[in-house]
C-alpha cells in the first residue's frame, strides 16, 4: 500500500486566540496519484487547508501528514501555487525560471517549465511586474511544474486565465498526472470545470470536511429521486429536497433499496456539489480515513 499524499487528523486552524476557527476537526486521507478538487464557499477554509499542507501555516490543533512526513520535510517534493501567485516582481520571466532551476538542483524539469511559459507567447525578458494576472499564473505554474513535484497544491489556479489558457494548462496538469503519477490538489469555484479533470473530491464548508472520497464512489452513494409530493424519504439521508406542485425532487444517500415507484437517476458531480453547497445543514459524509483506499 502506498503512502497517502495527504492525511489530516482532527486538523484545526484559527488565526488568533479569539478568532473563529478557519478550519476545524478536519480529517481525511487523500491517496497518492489522485487529482483532487477542493470545493466550498468563500471563506470555507480551502486556502487555509492548502497552506497547512504546504507547510506555510502551522496547525492550531491536530496534525497533517504530507507524503508520509511532516509538511516542512516534504517541501522539496511539493509544489504550491498560492492564490496570489507570489513571484519576485523585479525579475524577468527568464530569471524567474533560472531561479527555479537553481533552487531545485537535480530535479528541475526545464522542458516542462519552458513549455508552460512558451504556451503564453511570453517574452522571456519581460519583468514579472509588467505581466497580467493570467501571465503571472502561467509563470507560477511553470515554476511549480518545473520542480516536478510528487504533490501539487494549487489554490484557484485557473481563476484569472482565459478559456484557451485554462484548457491548455489543465491539459498540461493532466499530462503530468498521466506521465509521473503526480498527485494534484486544486481548489476551484468552477465546478463544471472539475467534472472531467478530478477523480477525488474534498468538499469543505463552515471550516469542516463535508464530503471526501473518490468521485465515482461519492456519485454512486447518492441518487436523484422524483416522487409524489409528501412522500416520506426516511430512512434515507436527505441532502436536499424540493416540492413543486405535486412533485417532490430530492438528492438522497440511500440507506437501502429505494421503492420501485420512485423515479431515480444518477446525479452529476456538479449537481452533487451544488446540493451540498445550497444546504449547509445537510448531514456530512466523511468516510472514516481508513476506508478510502479503493478504486483504480
Amino acid at each position: 500500500m502506498t503512502v497517502p499524499a495527504i492525511e489530516a487528523d482532527a486538523l484545526g486552524k484559527r488565526f488568533g486566540r479569539r478568532a473563529a476557527w478557519a478550519l476545524r476537526d478536519c480529517s481525511f486521507r487523500l491517496p497518492a496519484g489522485r487529482v483532487c478538487a477542493v470545493v466550498g464557499p468563500n471563506g470555507a477554509g480551502k486556502s487555509t487547508l492548502l497552506a497547512l499542507a504546504a507547510g506555510l501555516l502551522g496547525p492550531t490543533e491536530g496534525t497533517v501528514t504530507v507524503l508520509g512526513t511532516d509538511p516542512a520535510t516534504a517541501r522539496p517534493e511539493v509544489g504550491f501555487v498560492d492564490q496570489d501567485k507570489p513571484l519576485y516582481p523585479q525579475l524577468t520571466v527568464a530569471e524567474t525560471l533560472r531561479m527555479g532551476a537553481d533552487l531545485n538542483p537535480g530535479h528541475w524539469d526545464e522542458r516542462t517549465a519552458a513549455r508552460v511559459v512558451a504556451g503564453g507567447d511570453l517574452d522571456p525578458n519581460r519583468r514579472i511586474r509588467s505581466l497580467s494576472g493570467g501571465q503571472r499564473t502561467r509563470v507560477a505554474l511553470a515554476l511549480a511544474l518545473g520542480k516536478r513535484p510528487a504533490l501539487l497544491l494549487l489554490d484557484e489556479p485557473m481563476a484569472d486565465l482565459d478559456p484557451l489558457a485554462r484548457h491548455e494548462l489543465m491539459g498540461v496538469l493532466m499530462g503530468q498526472a498521466a506521465a509521473h503519477g503526480t498527485t494534484i490538489v486544486m481548489s476551484s469555484h468552477v465546478v463544471a470545470e472539475l467534472e472531467d479533470t478530478c477523480d477525488h473530491l474534498l468538499l469543505i464548508g463552515g471550516g469542516r470536511v463535508r464530503l471526501a472520497g473518490d468521485t465515482d464512489d461519492l456519485l454512486a452513494a447518492h441518487t436523484r429521486v422524483t416522487a409524489p409530493a409528501r412522500t416520506p424519504l426516511d430512512p434515507h439521508t436527505v441532502v436536499e429536497s424540493r416540492t413543486t406542485g405535486r412533485q417532490l425532487t430530492a438528492l438522497v444517500r440511500p440507506a437501502g433499496p429505494l421503492p420501485g415507484d420512485w423515479r431515480t437517476g444518477a446525479p452529476s458531480l456538479e449537481e452533487l456539489v451544488l446540493s451540498y453547497l445550497r444546504n449547509p445543514g445537510a448531514p456530512d459524509q466523511a468516510p472514516p480515513p481508513d476506508t478510502t483506499e479503493t478504486a483504480a
Binding site: 487529482v35 484548457h167 491548455e168 489543465m170 491539459g171 498540461v172 493532466m174 499530462g175 498526472a177 498521466a178 506521465a179 472531467d196 479533470t197 478530478c198 477523480d199 483504480a296
Partner: peptide, 17 residues
C-alpha cells in the same frame, strides 16, 4: 495515442482515458 497525449489535448483525467 498515449493517455498523456489524450489528456494534454482534451484536459480530461488520465483515468478516464
Amino acid at each position: 495515442p498515449t493517455a498523456r497525449e489524450v489528456v494534454e489535448a482534451t484536459a480530461v483525467n488520465p483515468n478516464t482515458v
